[in-house]
Simulated assay, not measured.
Amino acid sequence: MTDLADRRGAETQVYQPAEDTRLLAEAAVSEIEPPARVLDVGTGSGYVAATVADETGADVVGSDLNPYAVRQAADRGVPVVRSDLVSAFRDGAFDAVVFNPPYLPRDDDAAREDWMEVALSGGDDGRAVVEPFLDDVGRVLAPDGFALVLVSTLTGVDEVIEYAGERGFSAVAVREESFPFETLSVLKLWK
Results as ranks from 00 to 15, higher is better:
residue 150 L to S: 06
residue 92 G to P: 05
residue 83 S to D: 06
residue 123 G to I: 06
residue 126 G to E: 06
residue 187 L to F: 13
residue 139 R to I: 03
residue 63 S to N: 05
residue 87 S to G: 14
residue 55 E to K: 02
residue 140 V to I: 01
residue 158 D to A: 13
residue 112 R to N: 07
residue 165 G to K: 08
residue 152 S to P: 09
residue 147 A to M: 11
residue 42 G to Q: 11
residue 78 V to H: 04
residue 112 R to I: 15
residue 59 D to Q: 14
residue 30 S to L: 05
residue 161 I to D: 03
residue 47 Y to V: 01
residue 116 M to Q: 11
residue 120 L to Y: 12
residue 179 F to W: 12
residue 148 L to A: 08
residue 62 G to C: 09
residue 187 L to N: 12
residue 52 V to D: 02
residue 57 G to P: 12
residue 159 E to C: 00
residue 160 V to W: 04
residue 4 L to S: 05
residue 147 A to W: 13
residue 71 R to H: 03
residue 74 A to L: 03
residue 105 P to N: 05
residue 30 S to E: 11
residue 165 G to N: 08
residue 147 A to S: 15
residue 72 Q to H: 01
residue 177 E to D: 09
residue 46 G to Q: 10
residue 116 M to C: 06
residue 36 A to W: 06
residue 63 S to D: 03
residue 33 E to K: 05
residue 153 T to S: 15
residue 169 F to Y: 15
residue 188 K to L: 00
residue 33 E to T: 04
residue 33 E to S: 08
residue 28 A to R: 01
residue 52 V to I: 10
residue 70 V to L: 08
residue 187 L to G: 11
residue 180 P to T: 05
residue 90 R to Y: 00
residue 22 R to D: 14
residue 141 L to M: 01
residue 6 D to V: 03
residue 82 R to G: 04
residue 177 E to I: 02
residue 131 E to Y: 14
residue 177 E to K: 09
residue 96 A to W: 01
residue 119 A to E: 13
residue 171 A to C: 08
residue 163 Y to F: 15
residue 132 P to L: 02
residue 186 V to P: 10
residue 127 R to P: 01
residue 90 R to P: 02
residue 95 D to W: 02
residue 40 D to F: 06
residue 148 L to H: 05
residue 10 A to M: 09
residue 121 S to P: 00
residue 73 A to D: 09
residue 98 V to E: 02
residue 21 T to S: 14
residue 168 G to K: 09
residue 1 M to K: 04
residue 144 D to V: 01
residue 106 R to N: 08
residue 154 L to M: 14
residue 27 A to E: 11
residue 182 E to K: 10
residue 23 L to S: 10
residue 130 V to L: 06
residue 81 V to E: 10
residue 11 E to M: 10
residue 152 S to N: 10
residue 142 A to G: 10
residue 27 A to D: 12
residue 87 S to E: 15
residue 16 Q to W: 00
residue 59 D to H: 11
residue 43 T to L: 10
residue 107 D to I: 01
residue 58 A to V: 06
residue 136 D to I: 00
residue 44 G to D: 12
residue 40 D to I: 10
residue 90 R to S: 09
residue 163 Y to I: 04
residue 76 R to K: 12
residue 70 V to C: 12
residue 91 D to K: 04
residue 45 S to D: 07
residue 87 S to K: 08
residue 75 D to Y: 03
residue 50 A to R: 13
residue 118 V to T: 13
residue 4 L to A: 11
residue 150 L to C: 07
residue 4 L to C: 00
residue 89 F to P: 07
residue 113 E to D: 15
residue 77 G to D: 04
residue 184 L to Y: 14
residue 25 A to M: 08
residue 86 V to S: 02
residue 89 F to T: 07
residue 69 A to Q: 07
residue 92 G to Q: 07
residue 173 A to W: 03
residue 115 W to V: 11
residue 126 G to M: 11
residue 161 I to T: 14
residue 129 V to W: 03
residue 113 E to F: 06
residue 133 F to N: 07
residue 84 D to R: 14
residue 113 E to A: 14
residue 10 A to W: 09
residue 101 P to H: 14
residue 88 A to R: 12
residue 53 A to H: 04
residue 55 E to G: 01
residue 14 V to H: 12
residue 146 F to T: 01
residue 69 A to E: 07
residue 21 T to D: 07
residue 135 D to Q: 04
residue 89 F to C: 10
residue 80 V to H: 13
residue 168 G to R: 07
residue 190 W to V: 04
residue 34 P to F: 00
residue 56 T to C: 06
